[in-house]
Design a protein around this nucleic acid. Structure first.
Length: 665
DNA sequence: GTTAGGG
DNA sequence: CCCTAAC
């Protein structure tokens, strides 16, 4: 049988954690009062659960996986998860998965009595498919195999739809990445983009399951990884005993089936509904905020919530792109680390991530022909919230790649490891006229040079090591406050000398926004993004092939970049001296290097500061601004309000005087 | 291009 | 942060 269920989660696709039922419906209602309307719909999760339940019911003694659910007094689930190492693909599913109400299921799986639950996230929709194992083995994008064992019947969905009362929930997720790279806890393996590009999917520590996840001895999984890769499959085990987390987000509307079931080990977690590069939230669908802290409410209030607006404070999708081990790392928490860029496109290094510029160079007559096999996309590090769906992940990657190749990226040329900066030189002048140069030519993808960010300040001189790819995620995870998006700085080293240096500037990058991207990116040359190793003519077309990234709507709005206290202080100070109404001067005076702060921004910020200072502290949100600063804001505001009046009066008076004294006027 | 103010 | 009007 093939149970195909469209969850209509829009671009959200699946929320794996949410696929695991965890609490009795009764208790869940407590968590979410708006679930009633959901119950009427047979959720895909129920389906999943039932299948998994069946499966596990039968193999409960097999102890391949034990997810003991237990409910606490609050209806929370508790339990432990043990990793299952059996390869679901190498092994036939052991359950019959005959789902009630879907007798047909048996027919298809009759021969083997094996059925796997196949979940495909396609395009805008989420599709759950219950298919025979054989189908499960088909190489498709993402094929999570879900097995659920629901102990104590806490997995109501399981029990309900599957008639199973005791089982364990284990979601085996076949990452489905090319070549079966598995998502592995914090770091998913490479994601092949055009064979060579790599995409590392990182799940922030914050979204990892807490210590209740037990890994069997010998497991090399990440302790708190929500995904543990093994072989070609990543297993996702979730445990939910935290109501808060459960309530964190909930798809409303059509996405009700997706509830966040995982628990986060600590509160440093940033939850995100949006991806950096794309949307974790379907454009046409919104999350239902069930929290009371207003954190999300504020977000939700944004009218463009579902239209690509990125609430940075909730962002956990960290998109980074870097040049192999020494490249750039873009991350969503405002950081961009320009790791030492390999300036020597040596051949044969593609395996370990070093981009190679294996560009075929042929010299015929006076013509030089290039054959670029493929353009390599730099490593893309994308940190997504566990609530992100596979579909959104795909889109995120796609958008990231698209953005990379968009007009925000320029092509750089490397000859013998050196960047050719003079575009006016001929190839022969550059040394590209003979066969000896084959292999010495490289191309890089780099941000446009026209917009170079400038160091804002040195308050957060965070420097990460080139290979410290996890540092960013850790740092973000460790961010004490949800919206600790600091205004990072950037060491604007000379592009040339920058090569080989490790530089991080925490400029926020929004690659999918070409304008922003280009704007934010530090020195261009140091940010060579990609190099090539190529050879397929069509690959070359990649660059021009993406003339129109989906940024039409995404680039509409700039990324929100909350002012840091430091910035506020600088603003206040400037206004104190210059007064309001001279925003351009304020900008030039104190934010000249903050390319992302326009004088309009400063003006707006001042406006909000005045407002903030006027309201009670309880009503304030976001990163708290020292009262001292707010006091100064009010003082300055008052002062200049009067002062302006005086000035205006003077000016008017002066003007009047001038008119009167000047007959020509 | 700036500034001011509403959204 | 966006948009627009006004200068």
């Amino acid at each position: 049988m093939v149970v195909k269920r469209r969850l209509n989660c829009g671009s959200n696709g699946f929320d794996f954690p949410n696929m695991i039922p965890k609490a009795p419906r009764s208790s869940r209602r407590k968590v979410s009062s708006k679930r009633d309307d959901v119950d009427s719909q047979t959720s895909a999760i129920d389906m999943l659960a039932s299948l998994a339940g069946k499966l596990l019911e039968e193999s409960e003694s097999s102890s391949t996986s034990t997810y003991a659910f237990g409910g606490d007094d609050h209806g929370h689930l508790s339990g432990e998860i043990k990793q299952e190492h059996e390869d679901v693909y190498s092994k036939p599913c052991k359950s019959e998965f005959s789902h009630q109400g879907n007798p047909s299921s048996k027919s298809t799986s009759e021969d083997t009595s094996e059925t796997c639950l196949q979940i495909s996230s396609l395009e805008e929709d989420c599709i759950l498919e219950q298919t025979p194992v054989s189908d499960c083995k088909r190489g498709r994008g993402m094929k999570p195999l879900v097995r659920c064992e629901n102990k104590k019947g806490d997995c109501d969905s399981l029990g309900e739809s599957g008639g199973v009362s005791e089982e364990t929930s284990v979601v085996n997720v076949d990452a489905g990445f090319e070549q079966g790279e598995a998502i592995n806890g914090l770091v998913a393996d490479t994601f092949s983009v055009k064979d060579q590009s790599q995409l590392h999917v990182q799940f922030p520590e914050s979204v990892h399951l807490d210590g209740d996840v037990k890994l069997p001895p010998g497991t090399n999984g990440v302790p708190n990884g929500s995904f543990e890769g093994y072989g070609n499959h990543s297993k996702l085990v979730c445990r939910d005993d935290d109501e808060n987390y459960c309530k964190y987000y909930k798809f409303s509307d059509k996405c009700k089936s997706y509830r966040h079931l995982t628990r986060v080990g600590n509160r440093r977690v940033k939850k995100s509904m949006m991806t950096k590069y794309g949307r974790a939230v379907p454009r046409s669908k919104c999350f239902e905020d069930t929290r009371t802290d207003g954190c999300l409410k504020a977000f939700h209030r944004k009218r463009k919530l579902c239209h690509g607006y990125n609430p940075l404070k909730h962002e956990t999708v960290h998109s980074k792109r870097r040049l192999s081990d020494k490249g750039l790392v873009f991350n969503s928490d405002g950081g961009l680390s320009s790791e030492s860029v390999s300036n020597s496109p040596e051949k044969g290094e593609s395996e370990n991530g070093v981009f190679s510029a294996a560009v075929g160079l042929h010299s015929k007559d006076s013509r030089v022909k290039f054959s670029i096999k493929s353009l390599r996309i730099p490593e893309l590090f994308i940190e997504v919230p566990e609530t992100a769906t596979v579909g959104s992940l795909k889109r995120t990657v796609m958008e990231a790649v698209t953005a990379l190749l968009g007009d925000g990226i320029h092509i750089g040329v490397l000859v013998q490891g050196k960047k050719v900066r003079d575009d006016n030189n001929t190839l022969s002048q550059t040394g590209l006229s003979c066969r000896e140069n084959v292999g010495n030519l490289g191309f890089t993808l780099e941000p446009g040079p026209e917009k170079l960010p400038i160091p804002l300040c040195s308050e957060h001189p965070v420097i990460s090591m080139p290979t410290d790819s996890t540092n960013l995620s850790e740092r973000s995870a460790a961010a004490p406050v949800l919206d600790t998006r600091i205004a990072y700085l950037l060491q604007d080293a000379d592009p040339v000398t920058n090569l080989g240096n490790c530089v991080e500037n925490n400029q926020e990058l929004v690659p999918y926004q070409s304008d922003i991207s280009a704007d934010e990116q530090p020195s261009s040359d140091s940010r060579a993004l990609v190099a090539v190793s190529a050879l397929e003519p069509e690959a070359l077309a990649i660059v021009p092939a993406n003339p129109k990234p989906k940024r039409t709507d995404l680039s509409q709005r700039r990324t929100r970049r909350p002012f840091s206290v430091t910035e506020v202080e600088a603003l206040v100070h400037a206004v104190e001296e210059l007064g309001t109404g001279r925003w351009r001067d304020v900008k030039l005076r104190s934010f000249e290097n903050a390319s992302h702060r326009t004088y309009v921004d400063l003006k707006d910020k001042w406006k909000t500061l005045v407002h903030t200072a006027s309201i009670s502290p309880q009503q304030r949100r976001g990163e708290p601004v020292p009262q001292e600063l707010l006091d100064r804001v009010l003082a300055a505001h008052r002062y200049w309000s009067q002062h302006h009046l005086k000035q205006n009066g003077k000016h008017q008076a002066a003007a009047t005087m001038a008119v009167k004294s000047d007959p020509s006027m």
